[in-house]
Amino acid sequence: MAALAADPFRPHRHKNTVLLIRHGEKKRDGSVGLNEAGKRRAKCLRKLLGAQGEHNVGLILAEDYDRKTKKRRRPFETVQGLAKDLGLKVDVECEVDDPKCVRRKIDQYAREGGTGDVVVCWKHSMLHKIAHELGAKTRPYPDERYDIMWTLRNGRVVKKESERCPGLDPQHPRKHDGDLEIDATSVIDDDDEEEEEEGSAWDEYDVETSAGQWQLGGLNELD
Results as ranks from 00 to 15, higher is better:
Pro75Glu: 03
Glu25Asn: 14
Arg73Lys: 13
Arg72Glu: 11
Arg22Thr: 01
Arg40Leu: 15
Asn35Met: 10
Gly53Ser: 15
Cys44Gln: 07
Gly38Thr: 11
Lys100Ile: 14
Lys39Gln: 10
Leu86Ser: 07
Asp64Gln: 12
Ala42Ile: 08
Leu86Glu: 03
Val92Gly: 06
Glu63Ala: 14
Arg41Ala: 11
Gly81Arg: 03
Gly24Arg: 05
Lys100Ala: 13
Cys44Val: 10
Ile60Met: 01
Ile21Asp: 03
Asn35Cys: 08
Lys70Ala: 09
Asp66Tyr: 02
Gly38Cys: 11
Gly87His: 09
Lys26Ala: 14
Val79Cys: 03
Arg28Phe: 13
Tyr65Asp: 00
Thr17Lys: 14
Gly24Gln: 06
Gly58Arg: 07
Asp91Glu: 07
Asn56Ala: 09
Gly30Tyr: 05
His55Tyr: 15
Leu82Tyr: 08
Arg22Lys: 07
Pro99Ser: 09
Glu93Ala: 15
Leu20Ile: 04
Asp97Arg: 15
Gln52Tyr: 10
Gly81Asp: 03
Glu36Ser: 10
Val57Ile: 08
Glu36Thr: 12
Thr17Met: 13
Gln80Leu: 06
Leu19Gly: 06
His23Asp: 05
Ala42His: 00
Leu49Gly: 09
Gly53Lys: 07
Arg46Lys: 15
Tyr65Lys: 02
Val32Asn: 01
Asp29Leu: 07
Asn56Ser: 10
Cys44Pro: 08
Arg74Tyr: 02
Asp64Pro: 00
Leu88Gln: 05
Arg67Thr: 06
Ser31Gln: 04
Asp85Arg: 02
Leu49Val: 13
Val92Phe: 00
Gln52Met: 12
Lys47Phe: 11
Gln80Met: 12
Asp29His: 05
Lys43Pro: 10
Leu45Gln: 10
Val102Met: 15
Lys84Ala: 14
Lys84Ser: 12
Lys89Glu: 14
Arg41Val: 12
Gly24Glu: 05
Val90Ser: 06
Arg46Ala: 11
Gln52Ser: 15
Lys84Trp: 08
Asp64Trp: 00
Asp66Trp: 05
Lys27Cys: 13
Pro75Ser: 04
Leu19Met: 06
Ala37Phe: 13
Glu95His: 11
Ala42Glu: 03
Leu88Glu: 04
Val57Asn: 07
Gln52Asn: 15
Asp97His: 14
Lys84Gln: 14
Gly24Ala: 08
His23Met: 07
Arg74Asn: 07
Glu95Ser: 14
Pro75Trp: 01
Asp66Met: 04
Lys84Gly: 01
Arg72Asp: 13
Ser31Cys: 06
Val90Pro: 07
Asn16Trp: 12
His55Gly: 10
Glu77Val: 06
Thr69Glu: 10
Arg73Glu: 11
Asp66Val: 00
Ala51Glu: 15
Val18Trp: 01
Asp98Asn: 15
Leu61Pro: 04
